[in-house]
Structures are given as C-alpha cells and as structure tokens.
Design a protein around this nucleic acid. Sequence first.
RNA 1: GCGCCUGUAGCUCAGCUGGAUAGAGCGCUGCCCUCCGGAGGCAGAGGUCAGGGGUUCGAAUCCCUUCAGGCGCGCCA
Length: 586
Amino acid sequence: MKPFLEELIETALAFLQQQSLLPDNIEPEIRIERTRDRKHGDFACNIAMTLAKAARRKPRELAEQVVGALPESHLIDKVEIAGPGFINFFMSPAAFQEIVPVIFDEGEGFGRSDLGAGKPVQVEFVSANPTGPLHVGHGRGAAYGAAVADLLAAVGYDVHREYYVNDAGRQMDILAASDFLRYLELCGEEVTFPTNGYQGDYVWDIAASVHRKLGEKHRRDWSDIANYLPPDEPAGGDKEAHIDAVIAHSKKALGTGNYREIFDRGLKYILDDIRDDLASFGVRYDEWFSERSLTDTGAVDRAIERLKLSGHVYEQGGAFWFRSTDFGDEKDRVVIRDNGQHTYFASDIAYHMDKMERGFERVIDVWGADHHGYVPRVKAALMALGDEPSKLDVLLVQFAILYRSGEKVQMSTRSGEFVTLRQLRKEVGNDAARFFYVMRKCEQHLDFDLDLAKSQSNDNPMYYIQYAHARVCSVMRQLEEKGLAYDQEAALQQLDRLTESHEQALLVNLSRYPEVVEAAALSHEPHVLTHYLRELANDFHTWYNAHQFLVDEDSLRNARVALNLAVRQVVANGLGLLGVSAPESM
RNA sequence: GCGCCUGUAGCUCAGCUGGAUAGAGCGCUGCCCUCCGGAGGCAGAGGUCAGGGGUUCGAAUCCCUUCAGGCGCGCCA
C-alpha cells in the first residue's frame, strides 16, 4: 500500500513540475509513513515540508497543491492536510480488506520478499570455544543469530550460516590436558588437578570415553608430568604458568600423536554436544568452519604475507606487528609472536579474508559484547587487505541475566558453575527460550525472567501469541463441530462485512506484516517482530472477546472466519521466523 | 586514564533512522461484566525522555559536555 501511495505522490509532483509550480531539478525522496494516531488517518507524507525550501513556498501551501494534483483512487476516502504540512491519507475499508486474499494466496510465503535479490550474505554466530557446553550467554547469540539469518533469508538474501570453531590455541590445550589428567585419575593415578584446568563434569565424561575406548593405552605415571612443575596458585605460584607447564609435560609424556588423539577426542566430544544442543534448539548451520584449517591451508600465512607486502606489518622485539593504527585502531597488534606462533588475531584476519574471498556481499558477525574491542582491529585488517570494511557488520550481543523469583541467578564460569543452554531449554522450553532471547535488541542487556517464560498466562508474551494461534484453530474446530459451513470463495467477496473497529484494526496490522519483516531483517533486529506479534495477538484477542465469529448469518460468518484464518497464517509465519512453534492447541 | 554500549512511567521495554499531544505490557485506582478456551471490558493516575548546552521549521532521536551503570583495553583465545 505504501508503494501505491508513493506512486500517487510522484504523479502529483510530476504534474506540479509540468505546471512549473515546482523546480525541475529536485530529487524528491518520497516517504510514506504509517501514522501513530488514527486522527491522522492511515498514512502520512511529509513531502511538502521537505520540499518547501526548494519550492520556496510554505509547507501547507505546497501540500494544498500536491493534494490538488493527486489522482483519484477508490482506495482513498479522503486526504487531509494537518499540522505543519503533513498530507494525511484516510484509506477506505476496502483498501485493507485486500490483504486477506493476498495472505491466502501467498500462505507461508506471505511477508517474504525478494528484496535481497539472492545476494550472498554470511551470518556467523555462536562460535563458542569448544571447551565446554554452551551456556545461557551463548544461547542468546544462537537465538539472535538464527533469527537474523532467517529474517534475511525471508527477504530474499542467500544466507550462509556459519560457526567458527576455535579448534586451535591455548584454551583447547588446556581442555586436552584436563581430559588427560582426568583420564589418568580414572586409570588410578593420584593426580593434583590444576586450578586453571576445566573442572566441569563433562571433562570426566570425555576422560571416561577415552578410557572406555582405549583402556590404559595412554596411562603415564603422574610423576612423569608432575616433576619440575612450577607451583600452582594454592602453592603460591602462578596458575597460568602452572597449566602451561602441565600442557607441555603432557605433550612430552604422550608424544605428539597420542596427545593429538586425546585432544581430538575431547574436541569431537564437545563439538558433537554443541551441535546436538543447537540442533535441538532449532538452530542449523551450513558450515562449521575450523580455525585449524586456516593454518593447514596456509591461509594465515597468506594473509600475513599480503599485509607484509602492502607494508602494513613490521617487526619489533622479535614479533611481527600489524600497523592497525593506520586504520583507526588504538594500538598496533601482534600477529606473530616472538616464539613464531601466530596469534588468534592472525587467524581472525585470515578468516575474514577468507569470508571476503568467498564473495559475500555482506558479512555479519554475532559476537558477545565483551569482544567489542576487536571490532576496530578486524575492520582495520579488512581495510589493509583492500576490502570494504562496511561489508562487515558486527552485532554485539549483551549478556543475558537470568532471574528466578525476582532474584538474579548467580553464574560464574569458574569451576563449572554456570547455567547451560541445555538446562535453560529444559526448564522453560525451546519456544520460550528462542522468543525471550530475541525480545530485546542485541545491545540491550537482557533480563530473562524464568518464571515469566514458564508461566501459562497472558503476561507471558510468547504464550499470549501462541494462544492466539491456538484460539484460531479452536474456532475452526468448533466450526466443524457445530456443522457450520465456511465458503472461502464466497468469503472473499464478503469481506466488506468486516466493519467493526476491531476488524479494521486487525486488517491494518495484517497489512503491516511484510513491512515489519523487512524492517526487522534490514536492521538485524528481530525484536521488532516480537513486538509486532504481541500487538497482533492483542488485536486478535480483543476482537475475539468482543465478537462471536460463528454467527448464523453466512456472509458475516464467512468474512470473520476468513479474517480468523488470515490471522492464523500471519502469526504462524511470524513465529516461524523466530524459530517458535505455532501450536494448534495448548 | 582511554574506548564502546546503556540511561524513556513504579517494573520490563518500544519509539518505524529528525516529525504531529512520547507509547505498550505488567503493576496501581475506580466502575462494569462473567459469554467460542483459563477471564474480559471501559475509564483513570503515573514522564524534567539521566542533567546541561548546541544544530533547525521541528530533537527521546544528530553534535558537544557532565553524571551514573555495564563491558573492554595481553606477544590469551
């Protein structure tokens, strides 16, 4: 409907130009907006205000002329000029009734568009270190990234969903060493477990699976490893130095091949667990991209080489530094340490170089907000590589804080005392988790009210929306039970029976849905959709409470059942984009 | 100390990228109702948009600044 009105305005402006009432050299940007207040009609246009200066006329005067030049349309009841020069359109009821057959025709496709024209977009999200199960913080990234990806797909982008697996680096070594030590304990060794090792129960599970599969193949004397270890923290030492030595001694005691075997078993175990967790959460990926592969394929070396050749890398103190300050970063960053190892950042440069080489029109990274300091350096790297940094959008997702009975749920990643995503899903269900996670824009801290998420009441927005869907289905069941007929062909000719204000409001909101999906997708803000669905459900329940659908009169019943079905379709479509089910009964 | 994010009703949050009298849900107050699915309907109170400057026809929205909270400032990942 917006494009239709834009066309009318355009026609009017062209006419005014023809009459020399407007200069020819203007480039008017016509924007039609939904009004906030019914008194202002259904749509408003501020073109008279924006063009007033160029036309050298008062906004209201110009508005008069624009309105005078508007072509007639049966979809418009009246046009008013109001306030400082707004042109307000009052649409006829018929204009909004038209949405019902459109919804029926397009079905599940209603709200989708080809705006993105199949352009390739990558969404990388979660990408948690495979050193333990996903926790509730990762859950928000998962729900958020999945929703953004699905929204972009809905408006016609070719979306590639990717998980970056940090299968290299020190954290993974710590996990491997932790697995190994637990394994030794299972073998009967008396082990002093390092403070900085991974303490979670899953480490025991990994160790047990290794023990089950390989028996005592990798058993070593604890003293082989414990000898000459620098003291751990409780003994007054440095826990970091201690764990590094534990890793080194473990590697030495096992030999590279055996160490790698334990390392890979731990990695696989956790990655399988994460995959399973996310799949159960309705979050699917097109690709699991291995960080290690970047080293193996030489991508990291190639990236650094490119930076060296273009003069953006220099050597200092035995290390190689990327001169990111040339591109707006606060300080230069090491890419190769003095021990010859490349840094995590070097992998990240290579990874983003690879993303660009794969030809994505747009790359979206969903990161935890604690990584915000990395944005400037990654963008700097893209610039240095000659890529367009604006192609990269980093969505920084703030942490979610759980509340139970009004109290903050305490969480700490130390000693494995955190709430896992799996626990949360079990407690509140997948639907509520997916919905609550995306209810707030990403940069907003999320207060996740567990009691509300679980509650079967209208206070729970997710429940309220699902309930609307279930109610529609219930009406359809009763239609059948009562032996009443519904003739959709006829109904589409009888939509003019939808004269109640509640029905008008519903029709208007149904017609908004494609705009909402588009806005949510382009701004990467799924919360826009959750708010919309809440409003739509509210309109539906209000209507439901005020009127009988299953009336005796055929034409009115047909029209109302048709509207009912249109609501069901839109609610189901909207929930579907958020990964939330639309139950027929609850 | 520097950088990023946040600050809107009692609470949790919207506010369509500068528009009209700043909205919703919950909570609160009063009245009505109890009908397809757990209740609902109507009305009302509640705001210095953190404070202060600036930009312009017009600012919650853009710029500067102060305050408060969160996060980040490794040759860790």
